[in-house]
């Protein structure tokens, strides 16, 4: 073979460090350094611990009524006071983390999986199916999320599974829209055409070629949606459409004691409220930090 001299030969360092690895490493370092992320992790972390070990940590039995000590204000015995049945509010706040932290992530995962699949198909194939799906998505999004969820829970009857399905279903179009937008951008790139030029099946192109390149937006969307899922679960249970009246639940506890605040019983409402606020803020600070890192 007549050869050219290899123009790359005399040089020792043609390769750069693996940019994707560096990028991943870099992202991780930026994340860990971000105060937003750390505060978010602390806030969310506390509640995750409570959700997992709640019954072990709780100082009192959260479900044991004490008729003699109903609606007692904070004291050494009951740091957060007691509720209308004399149950320890602190213990109920600790244990109450579990219900919300089971439903919200599962619902978000469901929505993310369905949304990603729909986003990939509509963004890649475009055409009529895309148009029709997007109109449908627009129609669903015209109704406020909480009302759609309300409607569905009323129609199907409240239960843990219903909540997961309903919130997952409501999130699907939102996530699908995000993923679709990312896929539209990727589908313009020539590597997708290169795949067509070797008779690649649509499924391979969508899942093996495009999907790995749109993980960034999906991760960001997932964390943001997780915050909204907690928001929605809490709101639904405050409105009385929660999962199960027998399980300690923040929103439910708030709605049951809301009537007492005019009588000065603030503790049974304030502490679960603060619990919801800190958990949601924690998750959203994490989401914000992640999106900052991914979008730079």
């Amino acid at each position: 073979m007549t050869t050219l001299e290899d123009p790359a030969a005399p040089i020792a360092i043609p390769i750069r460090p693996d940019e994707t690895k560096v990028e991943r490493h870099e992202r991780f370092r930026l994340l860990v350094r971000s105060p937003t992320f750390l505060i978010g992790c602390v806030l969310a972390g506390i509640w995750i611990l409570c959700a997992v070990f709640g019954y072990l940590i709780a100082p009192k039995d959260p479900e044991a009524p004490d008729v003699l000590n109903k609606l007692v204000g904070p004291s050494a015995e009951h740091i957060f006071g007691t509720d209308r049945l004399g149950r320890d509010v602190l213990s109920r706040v600790i244990v109450g983390a579990r219900s919300i932290l089971v439903i919200a992530p599962l619902a978000t995962i469901l929505g993310t999986i369905c949304g990603t699949a729909i986003g990939l198909v509509t963004g890649y194939y475009r055409g009529f199916v895309d148009e029709a799906t997007m109109r449908f998505v627009d129609a669903i999004l015209a109704i406020p999320l909480i009302i759609t969820a309300l409607l569905a829970v009323v129609a199907l009857g409240p239960s843990r599974l219903t909540l997961i399905l309903v919130i997952g279903f409501v999130f699907t179009p939102i996530i699908a829209k995000t993923v679709r937008a990312a896929v539209l951008g990727e589908a313009q790139l020539e590597y997708v055409q290169a795949a067509r030029l070797r008779n690649e099946h649509g499924f391979y192109v969508m899942f093996a070629e495009i999907l790995p390149n749109v993980t960034g937006p999906i991760i960001v969307e997932f964390t943001v949606r997780l915050g909204y899922a907690i928001f929605t679960v809490a709101t639904l249970s405050f409105l009385g459409f929660g999962a199960d009246p027998s399980i300690p639940d923040w929103g439910q506890d708030i709605s049951q004691h809301y009537q007492f605040i005019n009588g000065g019983v603030w503790w049974a409402v304030l502490f679960p409220s603060l619990a919801i606020a800190t958990l949601i803020i924690g998750i959203n600070l994490i989401a914000d930090a992640i999106s900052q890192v991914f979008e730079r």
Partner: peptide, 20 residues
Amino acid sequence: IGGLSLTVVPEFVTGIILIL
């Protein structure tokens, strides 16, 4: 960050704290 934290808290929580 302040705005984000306020935005994401459910309305009933914000409302209750304001009422209190």
